[in-house]
Design a protein around this nucleic acid. Structure first.
Length: 576
DNA sequence: GCCGTTTTCGGCCCGACTGTTTTCAGTCG
């Protein structure tokens, strides 16, 4: 599954972690982390590059280039293997427990021979940490508690669940006297596909009332820490909520800082330093006389650094600072650009809303067109037949949808060999066909790739639905050579879906970036099974933005005539 | 270990909170 770049990045990250645990130069460890990130985000396969090309990657110098080359040639990195013999893998795993970092993990291993999370839990239960320097009774209790949390809960939460919690917290805090502004930041604002914790930023002159209000919310089960400027709690759902309160004058700098990502803000700080400036959550200051340059809005801070405004969804250190310097940031697709939905179900198959309800809800949302795409007959549980499909088409054609155009489509099943339901004649009757993988998830990469390529080459298939078929926290993505699949999609004029369903978000941002490099077009669909799901489109747009897409890349951001031409061009392939 | 619009050497982001300390190390984001 993983690209060679991901494997190399994982090795470099492991090396960085082991350096930190062994207490070597902290800066050295940071350099390896940075290089790992740069390689993970590099477009070319690093195992195809020579040393000179490797060293052109920012953060990769002679030493790291040699290690990558060694991995390319031998599949190993000798110095990493040596470190691994000194530090058991369980010691590194221990640093995943909240509150336990590299220093304490090493102390536990050195002094007590503790080499796994399980061993640590046993040692705490047996009272073996008593007398160990740096490990008082409070630390032992907290660690034991955090081990259980770490064992019992997923580390990432679905974006819509996090968004709901954030909205509840914000609504409560906005009602607190003295609260001037309140919003969410962090990975939620960046629209990452999954959310680790929720960052809430508030502006107020006095902070105590806000901190108290947060800790007293009914949803809060645990106060992790609480100070004058920052409070962290855990909710019933298990997600951590961090609240930061700043003066209103620092709003922009604080929002920028707490939105992150860390690599992005780190780069901003480096850029500031090179200009004789320093950036923190209170503002951008001159180093020499501490005078304030910008703080009120994010736009002010970026401008003072000589940068165009960078949308939160782009702040991942994937080249956005260079683009902002050069004025070449993309004009990102927005929810307002989305003119229609090309993947939606009704109660004819596994949807819960009727055709009429779906049409009415889509019209209410102001869509210009809607494709109804119920499941085809090879998904046996749906009991679909040709007759039912034709009857639905008749019903759909009879609906007066006002200014909205209705398209009759279907979600075909891509079988193990890459074929789809129904014959050419029947398929030709549809306005649009989505085709998706719904079974045989464990095929080899080679088989799976052939399967997708065959589907792309089918003249009746316009969109590949939820391509990796992952279900977040439940099912892994299928294994395919995505570069080969994307190349086929671009060549055949087949759009790749960005499925907006919160537990899919498929393609995700990283694959969107890769697909775009192949010249692929995209469809941001909701895959709605109910009228309320139409609102999920914002999450699909989030992934699209994170993949640097413009409205021109997204076929359902196009006017209907242009979309129809795209669909027609694909179908014309069948006569060639 | 990397890097350079003050630097090829000497820096490297920085603030908040906790716990165990008697002035700060460790962790987190």
């Amino acid at each position: 599954m993983a690209r060679a770049n991901d494997a190399v990045a994982a090795l470099l990250q492991e090396y960085a972690d082991l350096l930190a645990i062994t207490g070597s130069d902290a800066f050295k460890a940071r350099v390896y982390e940075k290089a790992a990130r740069a390689i993970a985000g590099h477009s070319a396969d690093v195992t195809t590059l020579d040393n000179n090309e490797l060293r052109k990657i920012s953060g990769v110098g002679a030493s790291i280039a040699d290690k990558v080359a060694e991995y390319r040639d031998t599949g190993r990195v000798r110095v990493l293997d040596e470190l691994r013999t000194k530090i058991p893998s369980g010691v590194r795993a221990m640093t995943d427990v909240p509150g336990l970092g590299p220093k304490k993990a090493m102390t536990l291993y050195d002094q007590l021979g503790i080499d796994s999370v399980d061993a640590l839990a046993d040692a705490i239960d047996a009272g073996r940490l008593k007398g160990l320097r740096g490990f008082g009774p409070k630390t032992a209790t907290t660690l034991r508690h955090n081990i259980e949390l770490w064992r019992s809960q997923p580390s990432r939460f679905l974006i819509d669940a996090a968004m709901g919690t954030a909205a509840d917290v914000i609504a409560a805090l906005e009602g607190v006297r003295g609260c001037r502004r309140c919003t969410y930041a962090g990975s939620l604002r960046r629209m990452k596909d999954t959310i680790g914790d929720i960052d809430i930023l508030a502006a107020a002159d006095r902070t105590d009332a806000l901190m108290k209000a947060l800790t007293e919310l009914p949803m809060v089960t645990e106060v992790i820490s609480s100070g004058e400027k920052k409070t962290s709690v855990r909710t019933k759902m298990g997600i951590q909520v961090d609240l930061r309160v700043v003066p209103l004058d620092a709003w922009g700098a604080a929002l920028l800082y707490f939105t992150g990502s860390r690599p992005h803000t780190l780069r901003l700080r480096e850029l500031a330093l090179r200009q004789g400036l320093t950036l923190n959550e209170y503002g951008l200051f001159r180093v020499d006389d501490n005078s304030l340059l910008a703080a009120k809005t994010e736009e002010d801070v970026y401008a003072a650094l000589g940068l165009d405004f960078i949308a939160p969804t782009l702040r991942e250190d994937r080249g956005e600072l260079d683009a902002a310097t050069e004025g070449t940031l993309p004009r990102l697709v927005t929810e307002r650009d989305i003119k229609g939905d090309l993947h939606a179900h009704t109660s004819l198959t596994d949807g819960v809303s009727t055709l009429d309800q779906m049409v009415a809800a889509a019209r209410e949302r102001g869509l210009k067109y809607l494709a109804i795409t119920d499941h085809a007959e090879k998904l046996p549980m749906q009991r679909m037949t040709r007759a039912k499909m034709l009857k639905q088409r008749e019903a759909l054609r009879a609906i007066d949808a006002g200014p909205m155009t209705l398209l009759h489509g279907t979600e075909l099943n891509i079988d193990a060999d890459g074929n789809v339901d129904w014959d050419a004649e029947f398929l030709a009757g549809f306005d649009i066909c989505v085709a998706s993988v719904h079974d045989h998830f464990t095929q080899s990469r080679q088989q799976m790739t052939r399967r997708f390529v065959a589907a792309c080459e089918n003249p009746f298939v316009h969109i590949i639905g939820h391509p990796t078929t992952r279900q977040i926290n439940r099912r892994q993505p299928v294994d395919a050579d995505w570069d080969a699949v994307f190349a086929a999609a671009a060549r055949t004029g087949t759009a790749m879906e960005i499925n907006s369903y919160p537990d899919r978000l498929d393609l995700n941002d990283e694959l969107v970036l890769r697909a775009k490099q192949h010249g692929v077009k995209f469809a941001i669909d909701t895959d709605s099974h109910s009228t309320v799901h139409l609102g999920f489109v914002k999450y699909g747009v989030g992934q699209a933005q994170r993949g640097w897409l413009t409205a021109d890349d997204v076929i359902n951001a196009w006017p209907l005539t242009k979309l129809r031409a795209f669909l027609r061009d694909k179908s014309h392939a069948k006569t060639k």
